[in-house]
Write a protein that binds this DNA or RNA. Structure first.
Lengths: 220, 220
DNA sequence: AAAATTTTTTAGGTTTGTCTAAAAATAATT
DNA sequence: AATTATTTTTAGACAAACCTAAAAAATTTT
């Protein structure tokens, strides 16, 4: 189990996030990381010798299998800390990312695995992104907040972020749970409430507060 | 609120720990931090320009008031994380220090204050050392585990690390609580149990398991 | 396909924090 | 008090990670 510097980890993570569509370019990375292109080239040479990226001058880069493995471990740390910050320390949803940027580089595997256990093995971070398990396995379908799902696109509930009994009562009443297949039929801009349709149920109306806590996966 | 590098913080913390008896020397610091004396001199020059240490060439160094303030904030972070690791993540007593060495440099004041609140404002870390509050105020008397208190040295109970109702029941029965003045009369090596004396009570016998959870302060 | 533009890389610096080896200051010994 | 030993500092280097400015390669436009 090798150990990488904070900078190396930041580059690896950024490549992982950017490479969804093919190879990543020097300028893309330099924009993402707020550094100069020349610095990116320097680092890519280094990561190449460490066999973490595929890289040929002027041709962009992609993570190797090993680079991907490392990226997933960093993302695991990041998202577990985010979950901890939101769930236990009561940080706001939108404040956790920045703090987790620092915590994610504290590396001991034992620490992270114990944190995971303490948090009861959460599968999604506060933004609905999946948390890789201790082997780096990650759910490949991204979860999207119901407020961001396009009209008439069927999805399956994968995660609800608030687990309060009040909310669960409401969800039970609406016959919505993890695995429920549903579709957004109409959104009302007045209060951002929406009408949704669950199979074999009549259409029903839910508030923005509730939708905010429901995450669905769908094929794209 | 200025921000210091991990190296700077490690030097500041080390000086704080070493300076209990007068000024700290270059060799003492280099031994503590596992670096070469020349590196210490370099850093002391830097910390001097930042007004964190008093320093005259060849004459050793001491923290300034500001340096002490910074040291206490670092120690606060360190000990809160230690407490978290032991109490919440169930790390062993002797494993927490190393991990906290990394976490202590993650600096956001908000994070640390929220962690403090989450932990319910603990006053002592798992080793019985006091945790500075968010203003850097620290209890000046060190707490020592009852198992480490010398025979016949009177001390006052300052802290019990296990708060289970089972243990509190036992303590209540023995008339021991925070603030109780007591003295270890005899230690039995067979099972490490001990006979103790509480004022206005007959001598009583307690197990090693119980003693392990009682921390006392005493003058030295 | 040549010229112009954009992207990427190279070449050479800077800062932080470390190092070694040698010099200077202090302390200990005779 | 002079010599010896120890401690500390200076001088000069090095690696990591960044930078600027110029050169080279790739891409786009004409």
């Amino acid at each position: 189990m090798l150990n990488y510097s904070t900078s190396e980890e930041n580059y690896i993570k950024a490549i992982f996030h950017l490479q969804k569509d093919g190879t990543v370019t020097t300028n893309e990375l330099s924009a993402e990381l707020q550094t100069r292109p020349a610095s990116v080239t320097d680092m890519m040479k280094k990561l190449k010798t460490k066999k973490l990226v595929h890289y040929k001058a002027y041709r962009g880069f992609r993570l190797t299998a090993e680079g991907t493995r490392v990226a997933l471990l960093i993302i695991r740390r990041h998202r577990l800390w985010e979950f901890f910050l939101a769930e236990k320390l009561k940080f706001n949803w939108d404040e956790v990312h920045e703090v987790a940027e620092d915590l994610e580089h504290v590396g001991s595997k034992k620490l992270i695995d114990k944190l995971d256990e303490f948090l009861d093995f959460p599968r999604f971070d506060p933004h609905g992104d999946p948390i890789p398990d201790s082997n780096g396995k990650i759910e490949n379908t991204r979860q999207v907040c119901l407020t961001d799902v396009p009209i008439n696109k069927p999805g399956v509930v994968g995660h609800v972020s608030d687990q309060s009994s009040e909310m669960l009562e409401l969800l039970g009443h609406k016959k919505i749970g993890i695995g429920t297949r549903l579709e957004v039929k109409k959104k009302f801009s007045f209060d951002q409430s929406m009408e949704i349709k669950v199979r074999q149920q009549p259409p029903t109306h839910i508030s923005w507060e509730l939708a905010k806590n429901i995450f669905v996966k769908y094929e794209n």
